[in-house]
């Protein structure tokens, strides 16, 4: 019992460290692959680390007339997303903190981070930041519910909203492939793209059409570093969430032996690499939708989530 508890705590610590390393790596990997796909050399894999370090060392300039909320937000957003990333099983499922928050609470944590970001943007009182907040609000309003509906479908199929249990359920072969799960996967992917300001919704170099950039426009130095790092963590959360629910294979389960976490790490790296390549491909191949289509996009994601839930609840009863 005690040994188990210590093991879980150790795994949790490992996980907290792992996500901090994996998040910038994933971001760097995606931009590397994207650059390669477009015929450019691209920045080195470790560039995000260097960027973050450079920003951390730079002097932070804080706008006059902003409140404590503005300076506290980067720390709170980062730690909220760090915790959220630490809650999603990546290489092993027996994490100590798992019962602290299930998938619903995870969505809540993501929402908290979004709300804080928006409030900080409004705190600057600048027109451009407010514009970013306005757009972010649209994503937030659509992404949260759509995600919950998709989760609804998945959780109902797996009889749980606890991520380790879901992974274990899939690993034990308790889920047969269902149309509803495929739709839920689609919805979750659409949301991941929207929530991370990735390509069909938004993307690097979007200028005044940007969503994410506008809210963090007034940040600099270490504050900006934390906001950027939080963005990388968010991408990792979405990727590892999808991996954990839909392809949990390779994950170390409690009682799997000492070598299992190592295999789990390898499997996790492979899954993230796959996710990164898929994301880069999507980004290169897709066209950014306009903000005026953002509502439609979110609506489709929501509909997909709803549809998944409806299919599932109809088929479960039958």
């Amino acid at each position: 019992m005690i040994v188990q508890a210590i093991g879980a705590a150790f795994l949790q610590l490992l996980q907290m460290g792992l996500v901090l390393v994996a998040a910038p790596l994933l971001t760097g990997f995606v931009s590397q692959v994207r650059a390669r796909l477009m015929g450019r050399q691209g920045p080195p894999l470790l560039q995000p680390f260097r960027d973050l370090l450079r920003l951390l060392r730079k002097e932070a300039v804080v706008q006059d007339e902003t409140s404590w909320l503005f300076t506290a937000t980067p720390f709170l957003v980062f730690s909220t997303l760090w915790l959220a990333a630490g809650l999603v099983p990546t290489f092993a499922s027996g994490l100590a903190l798992a019962p602290a928050a299930d998938l619903v609470a995870l969505v809540g944590l993501l929402a908290v981070a979004r709300v804080l970001t928006m409030l900080a943007a409004l705190d600057t009182g600048a027109g451009f930041g407010a514009l970013g907040a306005v757009r972010q609000s649209l994503v937030a309003v659509l992404a949260g519910p759509a995600m919950l509906m998709a989760i609804f479908a998945v959780a109902a199929a797996m009889r749980s909203t606890s991520l380790p249990r879901m992974a274990e359920f899939v690993l034990s072969g308790g889920v047969e492939p269902r149309l509803s799960l495929a739709i839920a996967l689609l919805a979750l992917t659409m949301l991941a793209l929207a929530d991370n300001a990735r390509m069909p919704v938004d993307g690097p170099g979007a200028g005044s059409a940007t969503i994410g950039g506008a809210t963090s426009l007034e940040y600099s130095g270490r504050h900006l570093a934390l906001i950027e790092a939080a963005g990388m963590l968010r991408l990792l959360i979405h990727a590892s969430l999808i991996a954990c629910i839909f392809v949990p294979w390779g994950m170390a389960l409690p009682g799997d032996g000492a070598l299992a976490p190592v295999i789990g790490l390898g499997a996790f790296a492979a899954k993230m690499a796959g996710a990164g390549v898929a994301l880069a491909l999507t980004e290169v191949l897709s066209t950014r939708i306009g903000i005026r289509r953002l509502g439609e996009y979110g609506g489709w994601a929501l509909m997909a989530g709803m549809l998944a839930a409806i299919f599932l609840s109809v088929s479960l009863g039958a």
Binding site: T287, R288, I289
Partner: peptide, 15 residues
């Protein structure tokens, strides 16, 4: 085109 969201065309045109 890049602004409209196809960075691929932008990269090719730049070349």
């Amino acid at each position: 085109c890049g602004e409209a969201g196809v960075p691929f065309i932008e990269a090719e045109c730049a070349l």
